[in-house]
Computed example of a mutant assay.
Amino acid sequence: SGRTRLYAANTAAADWFRAQLASPEADAGRRFLGERGFDAGAAAHFGIGYAPKGWNGLRDALKAQGFSDDEMLAAGLLSQGQRGAYDRFRGRVVWPIRDITGQTIGFGARRLFDDDNGPKYLNTPETPIYKKAQVLYGLDLAKKAITRDHRVVVVEGYTDVMACHLAGVTTAIATCGTAFGSDHISVLRRVMGDDSTSGEVIFTFDPDAAGQKAALRAFGDEKRFAAQTYVAVAPDGLDPCDLRLSRGDAAVRTLVETKAPMFEFVIDQRLSGFDLATVEGRVGALRATAPVVADIRDQALRPGYTRVLARKLGMDLGEVTPAVERAARASRASHHDTGPRQETSSRRDAPRHTGAARHGARTS
C-alpha cells in the first residue's frame, strides 16, 4: 500500500543517514555530538545520522533501491523546486523520529554550517504517516519505562531526551517542533494507563519568560491528566543536555527528583506580577491565585495549600479561604455550563527547555 511504501522509504533513509555519519564530510556532525557529550555508542543507540550537503545524495540512494520521486516527496524526504525534486535535509545532523512501535516515520535535523540559511531545526512536514501534533520523540525507547513507572518526563529537544536516557531517566520524551498539545496527552495517557492518580508527568521548562509562559499554558490543560503534574527547573537554568555536560549524570537524575507541583509553580509565577507590599497588590494577587488552589483535584490537600497561599500573600487565612471557596464554586459552575471537558494538554515549541523541586498535589 501507499503507507507501507512511506514507512519503507523512511526506514531506508534512516539507514542511509546513519551510514553517512561515518563519512569524512560528517566530521562537523560528529563534532556537534561530541561537544554535547554523545559518543559513537550514543549516536548508534538513538540511530542518529548525517545528511550530506549535496542536493541529491539521498534521492539517488533511494532511487537505486526502487523508490520513486513521488514516494520520496510523499514521505517528506524530498522538497519540490522549480528545477525538480531535491533532498530536504542537507548538511545536518539527523534524528530518526519513530512511532510507538519503533517504525521510522520522519526526521528532525539540525543545521551545522554557517552558510545554511534554513531554520536551526528542520522537521519532516506533515505526511500521511507523520503528524507532528501526535509525535513524541523518544517514545519508542521510553514507552516500557513510562508504563512501568507511571511517570513521563517532558523535555524540549532531541539532545535533552538523549541526555536524560543516558543519565538513567529513561522516561524522557519531547515534542517535535511544536507545542505540547492535546493529542500528545492522549498518546501519553494510553501509554501511562492514566486512569488513576498515581502517575506523574514532569515538565522541564526554561526559567526565562517563554518557558514560564509554556508552564502556564501546560497548567491550563493539566487538568486533563489524572496523573500528578510537576515542574522541574534546573539550577542556573541549564537544560538536561547542558546539565549532564557540566555536572554529570547524577545531576540530571536529581533534577527530575527535585520537582515542584505544577500548581505551586503557577502560583509563584502569578504572584510575581504583583507588589505584595501594598494592599491593592495583595488583593489582586489573591484574585489571580485563588482559582489555582480552588482547582486542586484532591480536596484533602486544598486547605493545606490555602494556608500556603495565605503565607505567601502575607494575608490572614480568614481572608484567603472564602476567596478560594468562591473560586471553586465559580469553577464548578463554568464546568457545568460547558459540559464535560475533553481529555487532553499543552506546551511550547522546538528544541530546548529545562526543569527543579518537591512533592506534589494535583489539580482538577
Rank of each mutant, 00 (worst) to 15 (best):
R5H: 12
Y7S: 04
N10C: 15
T11R: 15
T11G: 12
T11H: 12
A12P: 06
A13T: 07
E25W: 03
D27N: 10
A28E: 13
A28M: 08
R30N: 01
R30E: 05
L33V: 06
L33R: 03
G37E: 04
D39S: 02
A40V: 14
A42S: 13
I48V: 14
P52Y: 03
N56W: 05
G57R: 13
L58Y: 03
D60P: 00
Q65W: 00
E71S: 11
G76V: 02
G81F: 09
Q82C: 00
A85D: 05
A85L: 09
P96Q: 03
T101S: 15
Q103Y: 01
T104W: 02
I105N: 07
R110D: 10
R111H: 09
L112N: 05
D115L: 04
D116P: 09
P119I: 02
Y121G: 02
L122S: 04
E126D: 14
P128F: 10
I129F: 03
Y130H: 13
K131S: 08
K131A: 11
G138L: 08
L139V: 08
R148C: 01
H150Q: 14
V161T: 11
A163D: 03
C164M: 07
H165G: 07
A167L: 02
G168L: 09
G177W: 01
S182W: 01
D183I: 00
D183F: 12
L188F: 08
L188E: 08
D195E: 12
S196I: 00
S198L: 13
I202F: 05
I202Y: 06
D206E: 10
P207C: 11
D208K: 01
A210S: 15
R224T: 12
A226K: 14
Y230I: 00
E257Q: 14
P261D: 15
E264W: 09
E264V: 15
S272C: 01
G273S: 10
F274Q: 07
D275L: 10
L276P: 08
E280V: 12
R282A: 11
V283H: 12
R287C: 06
R287D: 14
A288R: 09
A294V: 10
D298L: 05
L301N: 11
R302S: 02
G304W: 00
V308G: 00
A310C: 08
K312S: 11
L313H: 05
M315K: 05
G318Y: 06
T321M: 10
V324W: 03
E325I: 10
R326K: 13
R332V: 14
P340V: 12
E343C: 05
E343V: 15
D349N: 13
G355S: 14
A356P: 07
H359F: 10
T363P: 07
